[in-house]
């Protein structure tokens, strides 16, 4: 995997005058995007994170100009079909969604299955603030400061058996509390999955918060998956069950439209969605399109997981 070369226009702030609602914090420009190859580099900028980033968390894989997306946009423009299929529906329909108490089941091919109260589920793990890029399959993107725990931490504690190859996640099924589930937009409940090595990757997060606050319901409270090198729909929300399996789990969007959405859903500018190009993306809050990066800019960290795989076929 070659590092994506940044065109000079990307590192000159000349296009800045076209950007909307820009953050005051200036992006660290020097030596930008130089990740320590192979290892999970902390901080994308050689010059270190900007003051704004520092207050929000540790940046991972950020590129020049990757200012965190406005909180208002992060928490009001959401794909969460359990609360409606419009982007503005979740923030409107999810406000009364009660997430206390909440239980999470860990089951399947593990030595230590369990049914946890959320607090007990989270307690043993270190909470981290991480700023990630988020690329939606619909060709828009954000930069989001998440708060959460590493999924690997949870899985290690459950002790997967030798036969475990995949991790399956399931969202709460409750049409009374999730009005979107009364309309069969998808085959409810929402289901997602990762290969075990993807799930164990240190970038894979179980988020409980955003912008330093508790996750609002429209963003998938109280517990959601964040896999920054995959399209956003892999980030299943309001998780109630984590199951280790031997077979590849079926996932909601690939059931709904197998020709358009696959199991892997790795961000890949070279493999188009049948209805649109994935080569570029619209960054929320900016006017000009920016190039989409292989694995959403995390190629150095995750590229090796897919070596030898035909990514055109395994989309």
């Amino acid at each position: 995997m070659t590092r994506h070369d940044l065109p000079s226009s990307e590192i000159t702030p000349e296009s800045a005058y076209l950007d909307r609602r820009r953050f005051i914090a200036a992006a660290g420009l020097a030596g930008a995007g130089l990740l320590a190859a192979g290892s999970l580099a902390r901080g994308a900028f050689a010059s270190g994170p900007t003051p704004q980033q520092k207050s929000l968390g540790t940046p991972y894989g950020l590129q020049p100009g990757d200012d965190p997306t406005a909180e208002e946009d992060v928490t009001s423009y959401n794909n969460f079909y359990e609360f409606g299929t419009g982007k503005g529906d979740p923030v409107e329909n999810a406000q009364g969604f009660v997430t206390k108490p909440w239980t999470v089941k860990v089951e399947g091919l593990v030595k230590k299955p369990g049914n946890y109260q959320l607090e007990d589920f989270l307690k043993p793990s270190k909470v981290e603030d991480r700023i990630y890029r988020m690329r939606c399959v619909e060709a828009w993107s954000m930069v989001i400061p998440w708060r959460g725990i590493m999924l690997a931490d949870v899985l290690k504690r459950a002790e997967p058996t030798a036969g475990a190859k995949f991790v399956e996640f399931t969202t709460l099924m409750d049409p009374k509390r999730m009005p979107g589930q009364r309309y069969p937009a998808l085959d409810w409940p929402y289901n997602e999955g990762l290969r075990l090595d993807e799930a164990m990757h240190p970038l894979t997060l179980l988020a409980t918060g955003v912008y330093g606050k508790e996750l609002p319901p429209q963003n998938g409270a109280p517990l959601r998956l964040v896999v920054p090198w995959k399209y956003g729909f892999k980030g299943i929300k309001s998780i109630v069950r984590i199951r280790l399996t031997e077979k590849m789990p079926s996932t909601s969007w690939s059931i709904a439209n197998p020709g358009e959405y696959g199991f892997y859903a790795n961000v890949n500018p070279q493999v188009d969605h049948p209805r649109w190009s994935q080569a570029t993306e619209q960054r929320i809050g900016r006017f000009r399109r920016i190039p989409t990066l292989m694995f959403n800019g995390y190629a150095d960290q995750v590229g090796s997981l897919y070596s030898g795989m035909d990514l055109r076929r395994n989309y």
Partner: peptide, 16 residues
């Protein structure tokens, strides 16, 4: 307005 003058008539993605 939303793209060039900082207004917010059309929400998060004015072009769309």
């Amino acid at each position: 307005g939303d793209l060039f003058f900082e207004t917010r008539f059309l929400g998060t993605r004015p072009i769309e």
